[in-house]
């Protein structure tokens, strides 16, 4: 037990100093990471985004503190507690420490409860998810009315297919891209006619699965003008990764101009990104593994602009 003796000779104050310095460094790093974490996200374009980024930042901070704390101790023992080559002795036979064990049960418990309580509050503030109503696939889902009284715009029908998107506005305008006015709460009716899909706009930090046989009412508030990616996030088969379109958040004026203008346009085939790939596959002799064929392009007033570049 030579090591214990050498350790005992050192005054306790040295140990305290080392721990204090290490904790300070750990704390500093955690704060830095918490700030840095904001830069890992796309731009914030909805009311939900600041909450998500803030929660993530808090957890990055706490997580960094725990991670560096634990791995710091591991690094310390790897550096300073290695057995010399021919040292066959055992280490200190410590079997446990009730006080420590209670501390490291209670503290994580309090931390996770605090995080959970705050998250529940955020959930309630955003309250994006409205009622989910079942219907028969043979019926017309647009007949299902679910008005979200807190929303100003909508309901806009969001129809997901294998593999394209279609948006139908209350006045009947149909579009391949989702236009929304900035800073107004909008209600969406999420509809799928085939398999599961998911409405995911990273810049909004929002995602909601779309379930065939149900109409899901979903509300959100865009807060920043721009063109953002809308991605299908629930695996939906062969051309799943092509199932993307854009959300265009614009001023109230350009939004209503767009609605009026589009209402005057004739119906024409909209975006159907998997179609050219599927056509090429057929040309090459339909090789590869089996897939259902893509749904035909929806007929829309605004076919969108697939070449426009998105911000996030």
């Amino acid at each position: 037990m030579t090591s214990t003796h050498t350790n005992k000779r050192n005054p306790n104050s040295r140990a305290i100093l080392i721990v204090a310095i290490a904790t300070a460094i750990d704390l500093l790093m955690s704060i830095l990471m918490a700030h840095w974490s904001y830069s890992w996200f796309p731009v914030q374009a909805s009311a939900a985004a600041p909450y998500v980024d803030q929660l993530f930042s808090i957890e990055t901070g706490i997580g960094t503190f725990i991670f560096l704390g634990c791995t710091g101790v591991m690094g310390w023992v790897i550096l300073f507690n290695r057995a010399p080559k021919y040292d066959e002795e055992d280490g200190d036979p410590i079997e446990g420490n009730i006080k420590l064990e209670i501390i490291w049960t209670i503290i994580p418990l309090l931390v996770v409860f605090a995080i959970a309580a705050y998250s529940i509050k955020v959930n309630e503030t955003l309250s994006t998810l409205g009622p989910k109503q079942k219907y028969r696939l043979s019926d017309n889902p647009s007949a299902i009315t679910s008005v979200d009284r807190t929303s100003i715009i909508g309901p806009i029908q969001v129809i997901a297919r294998q593999w394209n998107w279609e948006f139908v506005y209350p006045d009947g305008v149909r579009s391949s891209e989702l236009h929304l006015p900035v800073n107004q709460r909008v209600n969406l009716k999420l509809i799928s006619e085939d398999v599961l899909h998911s409405f995911f706009v990273p810049a909004f930090r929002l995602k909601q699965d779309i379930i065939p046989g149900s109409v899901i009412s979903y509300s959100l508030t865009p807060t920043r003008e721009g063109r953002y990616r809308l991605r299908d996030a629930m695996f939906s088969g062969a051309y799943f990764s092509q199932n993307q379109t854009d959300v265009i958040v614009e001023s109230e004026k350009s939004y209503s101009d767009w609605l009026t203008f589009s209402g005057e346009q004739p119906l024409q085939p909209g975006l159907n990104p998997s179609q050219p790939l599927y056509a090429r596959r057929l040309e090459k002799g339909d090789k590869g593994w089996a897939t259902v064929s893509p749904a035909p392009a929806p007929l829309v007033n605004d076919p969108g602009d697939p070449s426009a570049s998105h911000e996030a």
């Binding site: 634990c70 101790v73 507690n81 055992d90 410590i94």
Partner: peptide, 24 residues
């Protein structure tokens, strides 16, 4: 989130085991 608690107990116990050991 509660599952992090028993999991954490184990993690801390392993680190406690390493502490002042004779690592090989």
């Amino acid at each position: 989130m509660l599952i992090a608690v028993p999991t954490g107990i184990k993690v801390f116990a392993w680190i406690g085991t390493l502490w002042r050991g004779k690592l090989r």
